[in-house]
Simulated assay, not measured.
Amino acid sequence: MAEENHSTVTEFILAGLTDKPEHQLPLFLLFLGVYVFTVVGNVGMITLIGLSSRLHTTMYYLLSSLSFIDLCQPTVITPKMLVNFMMEKNTISYPECMTQLYFFIVFAIAKCHMLSVMAYDPYLQVPLLYNVIMSNQVCSWMVVGVYSMGLIRATVNTTCMLRVLFCKDDIINHYFCDLFPLLELSCSSTFINEVIGLSSSATMSILHLLFFKFFYSCSPSYIFIIASILHICSTEGRYKAFSTCSSHVSAVALFFGSLAFMYLQPSSVGSMDQGKVSSVFYTIIVPMLNPLIYCLRNKDVKVALSKLLGNKSL
């Protein structure tokens, strides 16, 4: 009898970033430009790493994998958001919403773990046994593990979401189908979803804590990295090691900072509105900035790019 009071939701309405019509066109042009820059930047990074033999190392293999994730993550969200800017009613069907949620989780979790894996690589560039420990096989298994974690968690969370019942409330207070805004519309128990979300988040947080505590915190290992870098004879070698670590820390700070602001604050309407602005950073802005962060502060990439452009001009 209880289920008779529930209406079957066939589509949702996305509230979007703003409800003011005069802001729609400027935002459309802004995010269109950001998306084009993101696609060009990340496709350019993948192509450059693939074509330049100078960049055929494990570090740049991981960087090309990060660029692939940064290409796919905004592609899951931005095209639909751009269409909605031009539409009077921003609707998304139930199957489309669940599909968007699934792939968003896949690439969001994959990126979290990819950044952790990339913390492993700069650390190993200091010891002399780097080429032995960080082999191509180890690197490949790391990437497989990154995508496996994303697929597993996305499958679990989306399967649980498919069991949730939605009532007449169908307005998602977001610009895409995210986990928490969807759960707010539920008229059935979300206990299982919350337990799974909490346990998986706790597990992921512990893994990241172990990685970044070991490699980038003020611990003996970080002191060891600094000491090892300072013992490198060549100035170029020291600069390269510091540049690699600082670039990665910048990317991590941008991504996890905006992510934490969205998911680690009390749930309320006001915080959700603020969270939408924060989520723009980790879903759209950071994927655009990562190619710049790793390119502009990386001498190898600059040299490879100049050689590639020089060869094409001949």
Results as ranks from 00 to 15, higher is better:
Val126Trp: 02
Tyr147Lys: 06
Lys213Ser: 15
Thr18His: 11
Tyr282Lys: 00
Phe176Asp: 06
Leu165Met: 14
Val156Cys: 10
Gln24Asp: 14
Arg163His: 13
Cys167Pro: 04
Ala108Glu: 03
Phe224Thr: 12
Lys312Pro: 01
Asn42Thr: 08
Phe12Trp: 09
Thr38Trp: 08
Pro127Lys: 02
Tyr130Asn: 13
Leu62Val: 11
Ser93Val: 05
Met59Glu: 13
Tyr263Gln: 08
Ser186Glu: 11
Met45Phe: 04
Val301Arg: 00
Leu32Gly: 13
Ser271Asp: 03
Gly44Val: 06
Arg163Gly: 07
Val39Asp: 10
Ile13Gly: 10
Ser279Arg: 00
Val34Thr: 14
Pro74Ala: 08
Gln274Ile: 01
Ser93Gly: 12
Met118Val: 01
Ser243Ile: 01
Thr99Asp: 06
Asp70Gln: 10
Phe68Cys: 09
Phe68Thr: 06
Asn173Glu: 15
Ala2Leu: 14
Cys245Gln: 09
Phe68Arg: 03
Ser135Leu: 07
Gly41Phe: 05
Gly197Ala: 09
Thr283Tyr: 03
Cys295Asp: 03
Met262Ser: 00
Val143Lys: 06
Ser250Tyr: 11
Cys167Leu: 06
Arg297Glu: 01
Val301Asp: 00
Pro74Lys: 02
Thr47Asp: 11
Phe214Asp: 09
Phe215Tyr: 14
Leu62Lys: 09
His23Phe: 11
Gly257His: 10
Ser65Tyr: 10
Ile196Leu: 15
Ala15Ile: 03
Ile109Asp: 02
Thr203Trp: 13
Ser258Asn: 02
Phe211Ser: 11
Lys111Gln: 13
Leu101Thr: 03
Val76Met: 05
Val144Ile: 13
Asp273Thr: 10
Ser53Val: 09
Ile225Gly: 00
Ser268Cys: 08
Cys160Arg: 06
Ala119Glu: 04
Phe103Asn: 04
Phe37Pro: 02
Thr78Arg: 00
Val195Pro: 04
Ile105Thr: 05
Gly270Pro: 00
Thr235Ile: 13
Gly16Thr: 08
Tyr175Pro: 08
Ala15Leu: 13
Ala202Ser: 15
Ser52Asn: 05
Ser65Met: 13
Val269Glu: 12
Thr155Lys: 04
Lys168Leu: 08
Thr38Phe: 05
Met118Ser: 02
Ala260Asn: 06
Pro220Ile: 11
Asn90Ala: 14
Lys80Leu: 14
Val83His: 08
Met114Phe: 03
Phe255Ile: 01
Gly237Ser: 12
Lys111Asp: 03
Cys167Ala: 14
Phe28Asp: 02
Tyr120Val: 12
Lys307Glu: 15
Val117Met: 12
Asp70Ile: 05
Ile172Lys: 05
Thr57Cys: 07
Val106Asn: 01
Leu101Ile: 06
Phe212Cys: 04
Ile232Thr: 09
Met204Val: 07
Ile46His: 07
